[in-house]
Computed example of a mutant assay.
Amino acid sequence: MNNDLSGKVIAVTGGFGNLGMATALTVANCGAQVILIDSAAAPASKLPEALVDALVLGGVDLASEEAAKQAMAEIAAKFGSLSGLVNVAGDFRWATVQEGDLDTWDYMFRVNLKTAVTASKAALPLLAAHEGARIVNIGAGAANKGAPGMGPYAASKSAVARLTEALAEEFKESGLTVNAVLPSIIDTPRNRADIPGADASRWVKPEAIAEVIAFLLSRRADAITGALIPVFGRV
């Protein structure tokens, strides 16, 4: 049985990045209408064929409540509803407490946590009007235990896990489910450049994470909410 998303309208934040684009392609191939939202400008190159009908919203600062509301207003104007929101937007910075800049902590919480909170809050009126709506957040396996240089990132992604649990409880009676996927190291060009010599074959590919996200967006996951699902590859 596949993850049938026919007739669903799914918004993917961080949609221009590796995981965001993989997620968008996967859910589009499952039949969903896709919205790509990103803080970067819209890609100059042509989107893959599966996304030719996607609504592309570039230059959206999802840490801004006003910008998030405007993005959701554009979605409402075009589609009238929203079936699911996938909060992929985020970033990584390595910084020790002793030598690192405290601004790194602010930045990590802004891009990893605040974007998810703000996008979710702005989307809730549209999601609440749709039976069986979904929110899927992207956490991180690295949030399970701190390590040198990983403090800001791990703390912000741990906060995403708590957000997921809190939202799931808040909307448990409504039918809106909220879950998070916790990847290990994602096999991206940036990570390969940042960790030279590592065995990238053990890392988890964006497409594999996207398949788990598609499952959580589908009716097959009706009974799952508040879950934090590890997707580690062979790390």
Results as ranks from 00 to 15, higher is better:
A166M: 09
N137W: 01
G132K: 08
T164N: 08
L163W: 03
T118F: 07
G175R: 13
A166D: 01
A123I: 11
E170D: 15
N179A: 08
S156K: 02
G175H: 13
G141I: 05
T118Q: 15
A129Y: 08
A140M: 06
H130Q: 15
L176P: 02
G139W: 03
A128E: 15
G149I: 07
A140L: 07
E170P: 02
E165S: 10
K114S: 09
H130L: 01
G146T: 09
E131Q: 15
E165Y: 04
L126I: 05
L176E: 06
S156Q: 02
A166R: 00
L124F: 10
G139A: 14
S174N: 06
Y153S: 01
D106H: 14
A129I: 04
A119L: 07
A133R: 07
G139R: 09
G146E: 12
A129Q: 15
V160E: 00
R110L: 03
G175S: 11
N112I: 04
L176M: 11
A122V: 06
V136M: 05
K114V: 06
T115E: 01
G139F: 04
Y107V: 06
K172M: 10
T115A: 02
L126S: 04
M150C: 04
H130N: 14
N112L: 07
A159Y: 04
S174R: 13
N112W: 08
A142M: 12
G132F: 12
E169R: 15
V160Q: 00
Y153C: 01
A155M: 12
A161T: 08
H130W: 10
A123V: 03
T118A: 10
T115M: 01
G146P: 05
G175A: 09
A168V: 02
T164V: 08
T118Y: 08
A129R: 13
T177F: 06
A161R: 10
P148C: 10
R110S: 10
D106W: 11
A147I: 05
A142I: 03
A119N: 05
L176H: 03
K145G: 03
I138K: 04
P152S: 07
R110V: 01
V160K: 00
S174Y: 11
F109Y: 14
V111M: 14
L126T: 06
A166T: 13
A122R: 14
M150P: 00
K145I: 09
A129K: 15
F171T: 05
E131N: 12
P148G: 09
K172V: 12
L113G: 03
T118V: 15
K121W: 13
V160P: 00
K157F: 07
V117T: 07
E169L: 12
E173N: 14
A122G: 11
G149D: 10
A143W: 07
G175K: 13
K157R: 13
L124P: 03
E170N: 07
D106L: 09
I138L: 15
D106M: 05
L163G: 00
A168E: 01
P125M: 12
F171N: 06
T115H: 03
V178G: 10
F171S: 04
V160G: 00
A128I: 09
P152E: 11
A122D: 13
E169H: 06
R162M: 12
E169T: 06
D106R: 15
A129W: 08
K121E: 09
K121A: 08
E165H: 12
P125Q: 13
L124E: 06
